[in-house]
């Protein structure tokens, strides 16, 4: 059963949230997400009581009459970079959860899931600049660092999606996967160009477009003064009069992202903050399966 994002948001730590989401998600999957995992042989060492008998290399025993066990080094499948938008516009929320909180939980869940899959996880948070960066790694304890970094993030200032994207794209050398979590309330052309930069660098990209339900349906009734979360600009609008044009503009924005990103081979997933996060995880796994 899918968990309500607002309920999940009330759970204690981000790690707990992530684990609750992912474990619940995985238990519901019929197909193991661990298929395709690979490990590399590292060394032999002498058998010690308590070692798994299955790891004893019986051929070596036949040759040397000693018990050796195979020591494998876990191989990282992918470098996964989570790029999280922490600009001020992400602070909007109408149903008990902000877009930022939703994006945080989504990033944490993805990190947790990636870690479970032995993928290296990295994190880049940005507003109009990069505010936090954690290189991709699959080391033990990296998940904790990932989650702590994620938890310590604060809402920033105005958005400039393309600039951090270009900057991150130019630093990544290893093939991997980029996950952008943002409300994408920026110049669509610039955003799409930034994402294509990753593609150009051989990265697979998945975009989670996080919007609040109010931003999608514009349910306001009374004449309202709308204050821009980033610029502070104010607009007094009569919803009855403005609704039509607003929804048209919003649909236009979403359609453009869906059309142009889809055309470029970039996965695009629109998420409303009232939708369960499992939807995003499923989308991620689908993309990952295609990459591997």
């Amino acid at each position: 059963m899918a968990l309500d994002p607002a309920v999940v948001a009330r759970l204690g730590t981000l790690e707990l949230r992530a684990r609750t989401i992912v474990e619940g998600f995985l238990s519901g999957l019929h197909r193991s997400p661990f298929k395709g995992f690979s490990v590399e042989f590292a060394e032999y060492r002498q058998y010690m009581p308590g070692d798994d008998l299955a790891t004893i290399d019986w051929k070596v025993y036949a040759r040397s009459d000693r018990h050796y066990v195979k020591k494998f080094e876990e191989e990282t499948n992918l470098d996964c970079h989570v790029i999280l938008d922490v600009s001020a516009s992400m602070a909007y929320g109408s149903k008990g959860i902000t877009k930022f909180a939703y994006a945080q939980a989504l990033a944490a869940s993805l990190g947790y899931l990636m870690n479970r899959q032995r993928d290296a996880i990295g994190l880049t948070a940005f507003d109009d600049r990069v505010v936090a960066a954690l290189p991709a790694s699959s080391r033990a304890g990296h998940l904790h660092a990932f989650l702590v970094t994620l938890e310590q993030l604060q809402i920033g200032k105005s958005t400039n999606v393309s600039k951090p994207l270009h900057r991150l794209a130019s630093t990544l050398t290893k093939r991997g996967m980029v996950v952008l979590i943002s409300d994408l309330l920026d110049d669509p052309g610039e955003v799409i160009r930034g994402l294509k930069h990753f593609q150009f660098r051989g990265m697979d990209v998945i975009v989670f477009h996080v919007l609040d339900q109010d931003e999608i349906v514009f349910p306001f009734e009374r004449a309202t003064r709308f204050e821009d979360l980033e610029s502070g600009d104010e607009i007094l609008a009569v919803p009855a009069l403005a609704r039509g044009d607003y929804l048209k503009a919003m649909r236009g924005l979403i359609d453009r992202y869906r059309r142009e990103l889809g055309g470029a081979g970039i996965d695009y997933q629109l998420l409303s903050t009232n939708q369960p996060l499992e939807l995003a995880l499923l989308s991620y796994l689908s993309t990952r399966g295609r990459v591997l």
Partner: peptide, 18 residues
């Protein structure tokens, strides 16, 4: 006066405002 801090004000600019 009803005041709402809103993220997509940029899109509202295209609608008739007061």
């Amino acid at each position: 006066e009803v005041r709402v801090k809103f993220a997509a004000v940029r899109l509202l600019r295209q609608a008739p405002v007061e």
